[in-house]
């Protein structure tokens, strides 16, 4: 299993990770070797096996529809890199 630089670039865009030119090759190599390793799973016939998406045999875990006090705004914003008018400030969208 090899993975191309183009695939690495595409995945990096999806993951919002800016890669330097010299890193792409490294990622391609490392990801390639892990993917080659996990390819081992294809030795197994899993026809008809239900995917195990929840390990616990637990269903319908609910809370009641009750309002509790919200966080203090100063507290919730205290860790923010940039704040204005009680809101998180981010650079332009486009």
């Amino acid at each position: 299993m090899t993975i191309s630089i183009k695939e690495v670039e595409h995945v990096a865009v999806l993951a919002r990770l800016q890669l330097k030119e010299n890193e792409k090759e490294k990622y391609a190599r490392h990801m390639g070797s892990v993917l080659q390793y996990v390819d081992k799973l294809n030795q197994l016939d899993t026809e008809g096996v239900e995917p195990l998406d929840h390990i616990l045999p637990v269903f319908n875990v609910f809370r009641e529809d009750q309002v509790k006090p919200a966080s203090n705004r100063e507290e919730i914003l205290a860790n923010a890199p940039l704040v204005e008018a009680g809101q998180y400030k981010v650079p332009k969208i486009i």
Partner: peptide, 19 residues
């Protein structure tokens, strides 16, 4: 980089800031 933790302030737009 929006609500907590490290942010790169150099980025010009949001996508760049995320990445």
């Amino acid at each position: 980089g929006v609500r907590y933790g490290f942010r790169d302030f150099q980025a010009e737009n949001v996508v760049g800031m995320f990445s």
